[in-house]
Amino acid sequence: MKALQSGQQEALLAIWDRHATLVRGLLRRSLGPWGDVEDLVQEVFLAFHRSAHDLRDPAMLRAYLVGITTRKAISELRRRRVRSFLRITEDGVLPEAEDPGVVEDDGPEALRRLYQLLEGCSAADRMAFVLRHVEGLQLEEVARALGVSVATAKRQLGRVHARVVALARRDPVLSGYVTTEEGIS
């Protein structure tokens, strides 16, 4: 960390070697596995490089990176929402380009529907859901990543979870993936 804070590039590359998969994975699971997130991965590490001096405790490196990645993902989700709002018009303006992803053509329908459903949530709520239920982070970690209090994160998670489950129950495909205490509903 000291090497990084003194501006040594090799130190950042070493951190890349250890954490690039984490960052890329979090971005892909947050934004959807169909798009190319390499530009964002680069931006996360460059942002980290610029702000590394703020990190006092090296043990918090992972959480710090998760925080930067979360903010980047939220910002990207908002940007995409604005763009998607503007792009499809009657005169046939082209949709924004999406880079190729790794998932094969026509991937699992449930996966598509889940991300479609998440499109209806706010960017911050969506990130809260992904961090808690997909990444498996603890509530405190989710709050730290989102930059909110634990109480706020708790409210946010309760709200988005209820919404996702309710929408999933109404979806003909996703309803098969909603479980109760007793089993699949």
């Binding site: 979870h161 489950v165 999933a168 993936y177 909603v178």
Partner: peptide, 10 residues
């Protein structure tokens, strides 16, 4: 410090 228990989940 967990969110309210959900009776349903994915």
């Amino acid at each position: 410090m967990n969110e309210p228990p959900a009776t349903e989940r994915l």
